[in-house]
Design a protein around this nucleic acid. Structure first.
Length: 745
DNA sequence: GACAATGATATTTTT
DNA sequence: TATCATTGTC
């Protein structure tokens, strides 16, 4: 046993955990060696299982924690697993390598900088990437296809950026792509879709549609140019000692493949590899794992995944990787299916199971050995109660909203904790609507949509203050025009009438603000009512002008926040928790900026934020504690991995769930170059719907309104029809004639 | 009824 | 920028 004697407490905890595992979980945990694939449906205790597996490896072999590698996709997944590990096996859990794919590769790059050709590499930031892209675009002549005809030199920066990322993800080479593009351009004039099939005006049958043809030629000329410039981007990025997220995976993969010695270092270290959420692996990540394990015919590989919950296909994830694993290891693969669910009632599980059975592309693994398609079994006796999900049809989306508010208030009255309620929808903008609804009805809510703090009033205020100081540093009185708006900030507590009086003096005299703010005889002559706040404000600016040049940037920022009185005023506000969190995020961002660029000046830092704002880049609010007292508003994607007692699926209409893919901000590709289409969009959507349904532990309502906000009819999503057709749900109509939208007025 | 030209409208997410 | 819906022609 490798766990030391001082850990007897954790041994007991761990043994207890092992005892509690059900039969299939025990089966998955107990086979130590060789590849194991665990099919883990929703709520089957996946994180617990992986933690137990790690504990078992440590207990039954002489493997050290650092020889175990656990890979997932998100930081959230890493945190969840890490916490569980420490809980069960104690401090030793910290030594297990629990990482995201990107963090794993980044660590390897950082540990072996010489291997990767440079010794001062840093991951590129969004802003740096934009800078490089803009610089290259700026240097192009105006008749370049990417600029010709556009006043904005950066017209195609987003498209180009996503093209670069796509090329890296799919590992495409510049020359191959250009060849494919040229091939199609040559074909175009002879293709039927570019010819008139009928006499039209002066054109005869068979004539070339000149306008259409020219449009496409121009489009592909742009694409060709963007592809060609890929190497220029790479060059410039390398010159600056930076690398992309995509590079992290690709570079390590390439190093593993090209340098056997390098690979063997890691093959010797990692004796056990555990992969979580395997259905989300993209091609590069899968190749990386395969390369890492290629030393063994039957590696100690433990994979956990559920093909029905694969919802990141649009990011390159492929379900077929699960089948690939089966094909690769054949009979050596230990296939286990978890059959018990610890989350939901049997009613919900039955409905969800029958629903996902409509997906046919994904069932290849589910009929092998002791694995068979069947509903998950509710593990707890409490979960046996009937709780068939309900589909509700409303007269309009307004009625659905009103009824939602009504239902929630009733639940709260019954004593239900708002934190146990989730509203799940497809697209973020549906959530925005709900935010307004909940605000009006004073329902506590929590939205997971990231907030860009650059757009918050408090950050805006701080930037204005610093902006003024910068002007004054450059030259006294240079900030004149920016001074007055600063006085209006509420935290100084200067009265409106006093500001008005000061401003009147300012515009009717030649006095500078410095003169006005220091001369109390002027204040007396115009009848200032309360001079204290004025003195405080002006003293702050004077002190800040002196202090700013003596302090390091983060300290200066904190100085501004504290001494201006902004923090004190913020603490008094109703939403002070949020506001303070915004301030924290800003300070953290500032510290990070200094880390990246130790010599950054206040001016540079301010310009950086200006540029971020111009480029729609965000400083995302960091929210550490998720309130347990408020209703969760979530997209189906974000709901993954979470569970709630009450789930309302809101606004489930066709246009939201089965909307066609819209590629804005992406270059269009010729048909000779289509991305691998081996995926079925409808099945992908159905999986997403399934993920949303299986978040519910005891109550699930699926709603839709027959009319939209302006009275146009809309269809429920196909998935609702399927549920009704299979008689898997209760159905109810709640149509209130003459009901418009009182709650919106 | 099929084709052609014109006009409104607009994802999901991580590192 | 691309697609769907609508209106306009043959």
């Amino acid at each position: 046993m490798s766990i030391t004697d001082g850990q007897s407490h954790f041994d007991a905890v761990f043994l207890q955990l092992i005892k509690q595992l059900n039969i299939s979980q025990k089966e998955a945990v107990s086979t130590l060696d060789g590849p194991t694939l665990v099919l883990a449906g929703p709520g089957t205790g996946k994180t617990q299982l992986i933690a137990a597996k790690v504990g078992k490896i440590l207990m039954d072999s002489d493997t050290l924690p650092k020889n175990i590698l656990c890979l997932t996709f998100t930081d959230a997944g890493v945190n969840a697993l890490r916490n569980r590990l420490v809980q069960y096996i104690g401090p030793e859990g910290h030594k297990v390598q629990v990482l995201t794919f990107h963090a794993f590769c980044n660590q390897i790059i950082q540990q072996n900088r010489y291997h990767f050709g440079q010794n001062n590499l840093e991951p590129i930031s969004d802003l740096e990437r934009i800078d490089i892209i803009r610089m290259i675009l700026d240097e192009l002549p105006w008749d370049n296809p990417l600029k010709k005809g556009y006043a904005n030199a950066h017209q195609f920066e987003r498209e180009w950026q996503s093209l670069i990322q796509w090329m890296k993800k799919e590992n495409y080479k510049v020359a191959d792509l250009i060849e494919k593009i040229d091939e199609y351009c040559n074909q175009m004039p002879s293709l039927p879709e570019f010819k008139y099939k009928r006499k039209q005006g002066t054109f005869n049958v068979g004539d070339l549609k000149e306008g259409l043809y020219q449009d496409f030629l121009q489009k592909y000329a742009r694409l060709r140019e963007a592809v060609r410039l890929f190497d220029v981007y790479e060059q410039e990025k390398n010159l600056r000692h930076r690398y992309d997220y995509e590079d992290m995976i690709l570079w390590v993969l390439k190093a593993f493949q090209d340098k056997p010695y390098f690979l063997s270092l890691y093959q010797e270290q990692f004796l056990y590899v555990l992969l979580d959420e395997f259905q989300d692996t993209n091609g590069a990540q899968f190749a990386l794992v395969q390369t890492l394990l290629n030393y063994w015919d039957t590696p100690n590989l433990f994979i956990v995944g559920d093909e029905d919950q694969s919802i990141y296909e649009f990011q390159g994830a492929r379900i077929k990787h699960l089948q690939d694993v089966k094909d690769k290891y054949g009979d050596d693969l230990h296939l286990v299916q978890l059959k018990e669910n610890y989350r939901s009632t049997q009613g919900i599980l039955n409905t969800a199971f029958a629903f996902i059975q409509r997906n046919t592309l994904t069932s290849s693994l589910k009929n092998q050995g002791n694995v068979s398609p069947q509903p998950l079994i509710a593990a707890s006796a409490l979960r046996q109660i009937d709780s068939t999900p309900i589909v509700v049809e409303y007269g309009s989306i307004f009625q659905e909203e009103a009824d939602l508010v009504h239902s929630l208030k009733n639940l709260f009255k019954k004593g239900v904790n708002p934190g146990q309620v989730a509203i799940i929808f497809r697209n973020n903008r549906q959530g925005d609507q709900l935010v307004r609804l909940f605000e009006k009805n004073s329902i506590p809510y929590h939205t997971s949509r990231p907030i860009n703090i650059l757009h918050t009033p408090i950050v805006f205020k701080i930037r204005r203050i610093i902006q003024y100081l910068i002007q004054e540093w450059k030259e006294t009185d240079r900030g004149e025009s920016e001074f007055l708006p600063l006085l209006y900030h509420a935290h100084w507590e200067i009265s409106m009438s006093d500001i008005g009086k000061l401003n009147k003096i300012k515009v009717t005299s030649d006095l500078s603000w410095h003169q006005i703010m220091t001369d109390e005889t002027i204040w007396g002559s115009i009848g200032i009512e309360n001079s204290q706040p004025l003195k405080r404000a002006y003293r702050f600016f004077q002190d800040a002008l002196k202090q700013g040049l003596n302090k390091a940037l983060p300290a200066f920022l904190e100085y501004i926040i504290n001494k201006s009185g902004l923090l004190k005023a913020t603490l008094k506000q109703k939403d002070s928790i949020l506001q303070v969190q915004i301030l924290n995020t800003l300070v953290n961002f500032c510290e990070k900026s200094v880390e990246r660029e130790p010599n950054i000046s206040v001016i540079d830092w301010m310009l950086m934020m200006d540029r971020m704002q111009d480029n729609h880049l965000a400083i995302s609010l960091e929210m550490p504690q998720v309130s347990n007292e408020s209703v969760h508003l979530l997209t189906a994607h974000r709901a993954k991995g979470l569970e709630f007692e009450y789930v309302f699926m809101y606004d489930c209409v066709q246009s939201e769930w089965e909307g066609k893919s819209n590629n804005t901000g992406v270059f269009s590709f010729p048909p000779t170059l289509k991305m691998e289409p081996e995926t079925d969009e409808l099945e992908a959507s159905r999986r997403l719907f399934y993920v949303a349904m299986t978040r519910a532990s005891q109550f699930l309502q699926i709603g839709f309104g027959k009319e939209n906000t302006v009275g146009k009819p809309r269809m429920p999503t196909l998935f609702i029809s399927e549920l009704l057709e299979d008689k898997l749900v209760h159905f109810e109509q709640r149509i209130y004639p003459g009901f418009f939208c009182p709650h919106r007025i």
